[in-house]
Each structure stands twice: as C-alpha cells, then as structure tokens.
Amino acid sequence: MAQYLMSVLHDSTDPATAEEMAAIDVFNAKLRADGHWMFAAGLASPDAATVVDGRRPGPIVTDGPYLESKEHVIGFWIVEAPHLDVALRLATEGSRSCNRRVELRPILGE
C-alpha cells in the first residue's frame, strides 16, 4: 500500500457551500468504508499563516504564507491506495465532492 496526499486547490476566499460540505461528508464515509481513509482536514485561509525560519538562532517569524498566489491549499486528504490508478479514482471523486481541483502527490515511504 502507498499513501497519497490529496490537496484541495482553491482560488477565492469563499468558504465551502452547504452542498459541498454534505458531498464531502459522503465521500469521507466512503473512504472509511473502503479502507482508504488515513486523515483529512480543512485549513484556515493563508491570511492566518505564519512562516517561521528556525534554522538560525533567534528564529525569524514572518506574517503570511510563503508563497503569494491566487490559488492555495484549502484542505487535504491523506489516503491509502495500492497504486496510482486507484488513487486517481479517489482524487476524481474527492474533486467532484468538494467541487475543486485536487493535486495528488505520493507520500514518501520509509
């Protein structure tokens, strides 16, 4: 089994609608039932982000996201799948449920 990160891409500040939330709940239940579920969460907007650089003494703390871009990650799933074809199917369903594009990326194994 491999693990994949499915990042939900979002390009406005509008929150998810009630229908989208309901569709996401249905998708989450299916992920659990089919044994793909590892974790999922929504994220606060990039306005609430802080960048910390602790590589030197006296860490530098900066307000805002590390990349200013119109599109940002608004939430994510971590799923387990035997190979990419299964993960692609999950990403397609996930994208449909949240009504946004999803970036699918393998998580490195040990």
Binding site: A2, H83, L84, D85, A87
Partner: peptide, 9 residues
Amino acid sequence: AARIPYGVP
C-alpha cells in the same frame, strides 16, 4: 515514485 501500475487497467 507515484506508483503508476505496471498492468492492464
């Protein structure tokens, strides 16, 4: 890295 399967879809 992405585990593209070596198989018939």
